[in-house]
Design a binder for these strands. Structure first.
Lengths: 247, 247
DNA sequence: CTCATTTTTTGAATCTGGTTCATAATTTCG
DNA sequence: CGAAATTATGAACCAGATTCAAAAAATGAG
């Protein structure tokens, strides 16, 4: 039935409009300032209409994160397809995470907020599931890289499955970003930030996993060059959907 | 002036009462259900009185985290004083983090929430500073352990300072816990939790840092025994302030 | 001890902003 | 075309954080 198709498409478009505008408002004013009535008004709809798409304000925030999760997945897939060695793919994912935060700083903060008990529990179950569903292929992708390295003999298994092993770099990457994001914390430590730091740490971990080829960390220049090169390979992959969540 | 001293002490005690009750309510009902008026009522004070201690609800949440930060510091100091090798001290800190989450699951969630832009920005500047002030000696303690290992030749510097190096295990530890805390995420990955996982990963990192003595990860039984022993050494240190934040 | 003054407490009133729902507008279709 | 069904509207509602004028308590000079 073509009528229903049209309706559905219109509904979808309107949802995207709400999400785009919300992302824009969050980026410019902060999460705190985002209010439902003004958002609806800014999109030229009534408050009630907004609530036909999102069961609550928190639900809308989750929707934003879910949508971005799709983009992240596409990005990660492109990275996995890059013609570089497996070890470098892991680093490239870390680079992608870093670039994403540079492009959309507000999005990283939103994500931190959304995974909070208070927000998570106030969203609809279906929206939560949407986010969880995104994470599954994401983890398969990462563990796929680890699995390929295992199969190629670049990496011993340390008595773990590929999935289990893949958690380590993932945790280090997100942990490192979270620490950095936590306002003023590293500064309170008396630490001035060095862009190579995270990659040193990641290499230390990968070396510990005996993931070939091992990296010599004493050659700072080589490390910087490697990072530079990865950034240049990853950055263009962003162009496709920089528009989707305008900042 | 003794009158003022008494007043100050009473004020302090009342603040502790508010915090204790708040912690208790959060533990039993969740952060979301914590309401200012009922909290004041439960402590047999008026709402306004509560606001003489905390500038906002968020400010109270930060106060809770700040108070716990003091306990954490004391705990970590005791661990640093343990008669075990430096490498094991780092693991012991990780164990402590894990035990703390087991004892006070709601506290970990609170901390995640508090470091969120929305909450952080709504607390008073002085309360924020209190938390940051806590973090400084904490980081000095951790980097002190790293520094001792460097000095003892157990660990090469990899072109980093002790503080910079100490960030790596810290990030891995918190990142790993955060991932686990994020509701349903690891389950969505299809991962069933193995209590040794985190320690394997930590050892992989420490091995990568070439932190002596290196750990053989193929001997699962030895690893489990080591973890068991660390838990037994760390657990008693908690007894001192388990009461402070009743769960 | 008394009373004027200062400090502290109180909780009802205020205010903000998310959510609902009766009504109005629009679309569908016989 | 008009009745029935669907969708949109936004003022009213409501929860809950915050305030503040009034009441109570503490202080201390005489």
């Amino acid at each position: 039935m073509t009528v229903n198709e049209r309706k559905e498409r219109q509904r979808f478009d309107r949802e995207q409009l709400f999400l785009d505008k919300a992302a824009q408002l969050i980026a410019s004013e902060g999460i705190l300032q985002l209010q439902m009535a003004p958002l609806a008004r800014a999109c030229e709809y009534a408050t009630g209409t907004l609530y036909q798409h999102f069961s609550s304000k928190e639900d809308l925030l989750l929707a934003l994160v879910a949508r971005n999760g799709c983009n992240q997945l596409k990005l990660f897939q492109q990275i996995a397809a890059l013609a570089i060695c497996n070890r470098h793919k892991i680093l490239a994912l870390c680079v992608a995470e870093e670039l994403a935060r540079e492009y959309h700083p507000s999005h990283a903060r939103l994500e931190q907020y959304v995974f909070t008990e208070v927000v998570w529990e106030n969203a609809s179950a279906s929206r939560r599931q949407m986010i969880l569903d995104n994470s599954k292929p994401l983890s398969e992708l990462v563990s796929g890289i680890v699995g390929a390295a295992l199969a190629a003999g670049e990496l011993p298994d340390h008595q773990c499955t590929a999935l289990e092993l893949s958690i380590a770099p993932w945790a280090l990457c997100t942990g490192s970003h979270n620490l950095e994001q936590t306002s003023g914390l590293l500064a309170a430590f008396g630490l001035n930030k060095d862009p190579l730091q995270r990659y040193r740490h990641m290499h230390l971990l990968l070396n510990g996993m005996q993931w070939q080829p091992l990296q010599d960390l004493n050659d700072t220049a080589a490390l910087a060059a490697q990072l530079q090169q990865l950034r240049q390979q990853v950055a263009p992959l962003f162009s496709g959907f920089c528009q989707l969540t305008v900042e």
